[in-house]
Every structure is written in structure tokens, then in C-alpha cells.
């Protein structure tokens, strides 16, 4: 796939594409460079930004803001799993548990690279391990020595990630970037589902792969992460009461729809794990 071929194809249906992208044709040099630099997987993201510029009604900077926000969360997740796998005294109980975390780490790293590429960030990562405090100020003091504590924080990160992407979707509405964001979003949900099963197995609790009903939304029994699940008890969707609909119980009604978190709520959660000076504003 060649970005210039795509632009050529578009020119056939829209002769003004280059003018829309930039008022000066000389600026096409930028796009040659873009085409060379950007990895293939990041192309939808980059193209989405271009189309946003050419056709969009909203400010392109809002799309980049979303991508930067997502990137920060992916840095958090990647560094967390990487620390656990490379620099901890955690004893993984099985080969499978280690493999699962390795798989998840690879996806988070891929998300970091994809978002960096889309934002045309070359060079070092914006966040490194030393920028994080994964104990959250001591709330999870043995996070890198106790497998169960490690899983609890992973659970919070994955379920937060799912809610975070969902909350940003409206800003990406109608933009090709949305599709890529959704493709990341559902991978995070798959991670969350699996981590929940790991927590259930390790702690011997009846935690389901999906977020179940609890009065305050938090079905995990880990009160330190209440904020992650705030609002998940909701059973009314677009004015339709799901409780009782088609025979669904209150529990099943709450489970059948995940809820979103606002960017502000996600930042508050994430900042508990980010050191002063690097906190999300």
C-alpha cells in the first residue's frame, strides 16, 4: 500500500484533494516524506488525520489530543507489563500466565509504536519506566513481588483502558481514525476479559470475564479501584431500561453494556500511577 497511490486514487474522484490538504502544492513534499516514514499499520491513523484536515469539520488538534492521550495510557500499560516481566520478583504460577502477560505486553508495545507513528513521533518514548509509580503511592506496595497484587493492578489498567477509548469515540466520530481506535479498544477488552479470568483463578473469587453488577459499579471487591468502575452499575441505555428486558436480570443488564469514562476521570486514575512532573494535565 502506497500512500501516494491512495492520494492519486482520491484525486480521481476529488480533483481538489491536494488543495484541501494544503493550499500550496509544494507542501506535497511533506506527504512524500510521510509516505516513507509511516508504517503501514499506522496509515489509517495518518490518513484519517489528513482527511480530517481536508474534509473535517472539527479541529484536527482534537484528534491529535485523543491520540496523545491514548499514547500516554499505552505507555503506562506497556511499562507496567514490561517491568513485571523483566524487573520484578513476581512468581508466575504457570507458563500460561507468563505467556498471557507477554502477549498483552506485545500488544501494548504495538499500540505505543502505532500511535507514535501516527503522531509522527520519532525517537525515544515520551514515558519510561522511571516516570511511573506502579504502587500508586503505596496502595499496591508489593505490586512487583506479589502476583495477586500485580493482577489486581493489571485488571484496573485493562478495564480503565476499555472505558477510556470508549469515552474518546465521540471526538473521532466519522473519522477513519475511529476505526483504528475501535480496533485497539476491543483488544483491550479481550485483555480485560483474560486478566479477569486470571484474577478469578488466582484469588479464588467468582469474578466474571465481563463487568458484573455491583451497587457502586465495582464488581472486583478491590476498593482501591472503585473509581475505575464508577457508573458500571448502569442498566438504562438511551432511555431503555435493560433490567428485565427479554428476561435479563439486573446483573445481566449491567453486564451487557460496558460504560465509558470521561477523559478527566481516566486522567485522575492514571495520575495515581504517574510521578509528579509527568502527570497528565
Amino acid at each position: 500500500m502506497n500512500i501516494l497511490n491512495i492520494l492519486d486514487e482520491i484525486e480521481k474522484v476529488d480533483g481538489e484533494i491536494y488543495e484541501r490538504l494544503s493550499p500550496r502544492r509544494s507542501a506535497m513534499k511533506d506527504f512524500f516524506n510521510v509516505g516513507k516514514k509511516i508504517s503501514m499499520a499506522a496509515l489509517p491513523l495518518a490518513l484519517g488525520s489528513m482527511f480530517q484536515k481536508a474534509y473535517g469539520q472539527t479541529n484536527p488538534s482534537t484528534v491529535n489530543d485523543v491520540l496523545n492521550f491514548a499514547l500516554a495510557l499505552e505507555y503506562l500499560e506497556y511499562n507496567y507489563y514490561n517491568h513485571a516481566l523483566t524487573n520484578s520478583t513476581i512468581t508466575f504460577p504457570t507458563t500460561a500466565s507468563n505467556a498471557a502477560i507477554t502477549t498483552i505486553r506485545a500488544h501494548e508495545r504495538a499500540h505505543v509504536d502505532l500511535l507514535k507513528s501516527a503522531l509522527q513521533i520519532s525517537g525515544a518514548d515520551g514515558y519510561v519506566d522511571a516516570d511511573f509509580d506502579f504502587t500508586a503511592g503505596g496502595a499496591f506496595g508489593d505490586v512487583f513481588s506479589n502476583y495477586q497484587t500485580f493482577l489486581k493492578v493489571a485488571l484496573a489498567f485493562e478495564d480503565t483502558g476499555v472505558r477510556a477509548y470508549k469515552g474518546q469515540a465521540p471526538i473521532l466520530k466519522g473519522n477513519a481514525v475511529l476505526t483504528t481506535a475501535l480496533q485497539i479498544h476491543s483488544v483491550e477488552a479481550r485483555h480485560a476479559s483474560h486478566i479477569r479470568q486470571m484474577v478469578a483463578a488466582s484469588l479464588g473469587v467468582a469474578l466474571k470475564p465481563w463487568i458484573s453488577y455491583a451497587a457502586n459499579g465495582n464488581d472486583t471487591g478491590i476498593s482501591a479501584v472503585d473509581a475505575v468502575y464508577a457508573g458500571e452499575q448502569n442498566t438504562v441505555q438511551a432511555g431503555v431500561e435493560i433490567n428485565g428486558l427479554g428476561g435479563a436480570s439486573q446483573t445481566q443488564a449491567a453486564e451487557s453494556f460496558d460504560e465509558f469514562l470521561t477523559g478527566a476521570a481516566v486522567k485522575t486514575i492514571a495520575n495515581q500511577f504517574i510521578k509528579t512532573g509527568k502527570k497528565l494535565a
Partner: peptide, 19 residues
């Protein structure tokens, strides 16, 4: 609103898929 609803459903489907 519909976009958000689709997002609320798809992550549950992904949880199902993973399980």
C-alpha cells in the same frame, strides 16, 4: 449517542470472544 452505544456493546462482545 449511537456511536457510544455501539462502543458499549462491542467491548462486551470482545469480552465474550476472549472468554
Amino acid at each position: 449517542d449511537y456511536l457510544v452505544l455501539a462502543g458499549k456493546i462491542v467491548s462486551v462482545e470482545a469480552r465474550h470472544a476472549a472468554w
